[in-house]
């Protein structure tokens, strides 16, 4: 590795081209293990999923595997359950990201301004970030139950034996609370980084010009944080779109709380329908791509500028 850093003779064209060829080779050698690993676990299985998705193939009857063309896709795309789970997934995504953006922004502002107890705040905000999602799911599930929880006792206007997991709306809220709690820290840290890049001079100038706090927020702070906000939204949105753990733990998909990831999981793992499950996997993959594409387009996030070569 280090041989390469020897002082380079300059001005000699053939040498440079030799060097750059060597550098090219070394670079490729160094990234090869990473590429192989990433492909082994993603590209290869994905290709296999595409292949399996055109079969009627059940794990319990592997010998009856039958080529069915695109009919798995057709069944899925014309099925109300597919659209219902997609709809609820989009709902999870939009609501949690929106709420997290607001809470995360407030947290970031506080952390940016605070001058005491920074370590304590940083520590406490990192605990939800580091905690296992399944644990968060259980903590909130038990908190919401009427038999052993505390939420019913604390919330005014809710009867003591209200069953949060007894209907879709309240169950979805419970799941969202767990999801929001667990992931807001990530959002607020990304926003904090963006906030740190706004120059104080600009803010002071605005203040001198008589801009109110509200005006400064909307005219100076937010426009200057655009890149940070967009990256945070993109990452969290794609993460939220894949929501699975909390649903598994809290409702196991009952009360129509099932997300598209959960539906796919059930087809492959619980129902052993590898053919249909693979078709759903492909559709899930494509829908993630679509969501990513829409966000990038809609908000014109410049990823390269935002995350790379800055």
């Amino acid at each position: 590795m280090t041989t390469l850093t020897a002082p380079a003779p300059t001005g000699n064209k053939p040498v440079i081209s030799d060097r750059s060829r060597a550098e090219n080779r070394l670079g490729q050698k160094l990234i090869a293990p990473a590429i192989v690993l990433m492909l082994l676990v993603t590209a290869f299985p994905m290709l296999r999923a595409i292949y399996l998705s055109v079969f009627d193939y059940s794990l319990t009857a592997p010998d009856d595997r039958e080529f069915v063309g695109l009919s798995n896709y057709l069944t899925a795309l014309t099925d109300p359950l597919f659209w219902q789970t997609t709809g609820i997934t989009v709902l999870y995504m939009v609501v949690t990201v929106a709420v997290e953006l607001v809470i995360g922004f407030i947290f970031a502002m506080v952390m940016h301004r605070v001058i005491f107890a920074r370590g304590v705040i940083r520590t406490s905000i990192l605990i939800p970030y580091g905690i296992v999602t399944v644990v968060s799911g259980f903590a909130w599930q038990f908190a919401f139950t009427s038999t052993n929880g505390f939420v019913n006792g604390w919330l005014p206007g809710i009867s003591a034996d209200f069953n949060w997991f007894g209907e879709t709306n309240s169950a979805v809220i419970a799941i969202m609370v767990s999801e929001i709690w667990k992931t807001t820290p990530f959002m607020s840290l990304l926003l904090l980084a963006g906030l740190a890049q706004i120059s104080e001079d600009m803010l002071e100038a605005a203040q001198v010009d008589g801009a109110t706090w509200w005006q400064r927020l909307w005219k100076v702070i937010i426009p200057n944080m655009r890149a940070a906000i967009m990256v945070a939204v993109l990452f969290r949105a794609l993460d939220a779109y894949r929501i699975f753990d909390n649903i598994f733990v809290m409702t196991n998909g009952a009360q129509k709380t099932e997300s598209i990831s959960f539906l796919t999981y059930r087809q492959t793992i619980e129902q052993f329908q590898l053919g249909m499950g693979s078709a759903l996997s492909v559709l899930l993959f494509l829908s993630v791509l679509l969501v990513a594409f829409l966000i990038v387009r809609l908000f014109r996030v410049d990823l390269a500028a935002a995350r790379q070569e800055g």
């Binding site: 590429i35 990452f235 794609l238 990831s261 999981y265 499950g277 693979s278 993959f285 993630v288 995350r307």
Partner: peptide
């Protein structure tokens, strides 16, 4: 590499478990 790792960071994990299990 950069594009690929970005794509993988966004990858829906659930869509892999069927084929991976296999």
């Amino acid at each position: 590499v950069l594009t690929m790792s970005l794509a993988i960071a966004m990858f829906p994990v659930v869509s892999l478990i069927g084929p991976l299990f296999d």
